Simulated assay, not measured.
Amino acid sequence: MKTILIVDDEPRTRQGIRKTLESWSCGRYRIETASSGVEALSWLQHNDANLLVTDIRMPEVGGLELVEKLNAMAHPPVVIVISGHPEFDYAQKALQLGVISYLLKPLDKLKLVQAVELAMKREEELNRIERMEKLFDPKLLETLQEDKTYGVQVQEALRFVDAHLSEQVSLRAVADQLHMNASYFSVLFKEQTGLTFSEYLSRRRVQRAKELLVNTRYSIAEIAEQVGYQTAKYFVKVFRSIEAVSPGQYRQSNLNPEETIQ
């Protein structure tokens, strides 16, 4: 269950926000409160929050200081800031810190709920992006980002490989497709991409396999076939050599918790 943490040193405001969000969420979210930035930081040392709703002006640790500290976390919550004063400098700093919404007191309940809905959508989008980033092979991504600097022949080779990943692709077959000498093509490919053709092909196949492992329920053998390996055993060997884990272990460690039953 996702958690919303409300931080405000004014008891009436804190409880009013809590009641409003509990009524809106109908049990979909866990709603927690803290009476100060210090209490919030202490709570967050042992708990995770998906959304932080915090007042700006509080003793000891103010709302923006709290947000700055949280931004150093590996997985900081998305943030909504509330304030009793329409101060431009506060609003500007909040935006610089990536705050989703800046709401003024007295809080309009409808605007609060709308801001929370927007923030939770943003939090889910950030989680999705983070999950996708985990899929990417850094070496392969670096190679693909240089696509515009490649010669026409190498660009065509990359497109050919992508279109035929499930088939038995070889350096010679690609060279023949490009009407090039295989040895010359091998040297040209390495010079421009920084990877041998064989290494690129393996990494591209494993990249595609990672996407299938996370986004589908195909078996390991089915995925091996879809990315061009004749046997699951050899596929597992190649996968492990690049990712340092087996395909099954990779799938298990990258499942979206919201899509599984614990």
Rank of each mutant, 00 (worst) to 15 (best):
V53M: 02
I56S: 05
R57M: 13
E60N: 11
E60G: 01
G62S: 13
G62C: 07
L64Q: 03
E65W: 10
L66W: 03
K69Y: 12
L70E: 04
A72D: 11
A74F: 07
H75V: 12
P76V: 10
P76I: 11
P76K: 10
V78A: 05
V81Q: 03
V81R: 05
I82R: 04
S83T: 01
Y90V: 00
Q92T: 11
Q96V: 09
V99G: 03
S101H: 13
L107E: 08
D108S: 14
K111G: 04
V113F: 04
A115L: 03
A115N: 03
M120I: 09
M120S: 04
K121W: 02
E125A: 09
E125D: 09
L126V: 05
L126S: 00
I129M: 10
E130T: 09
E133I: 08
E133P: 01
L135Q: 06
D137P: 02
K139S: 10
L140E: 00
L141I: 11
L141D: 12
L141N: 12
E142V: 06
E142D: 12
E146Q: 15
D147C: 10
D147P: 03
T149S: 15
Y150I: 05
V154A: 07
V154K: 04
E156W: 06
E156D: 15
F160H: 11
F160Y: 15
S166Q: 15
E167T: 14
S170P: 02
A173C: 12
A175Q: 04
A175Y: 01
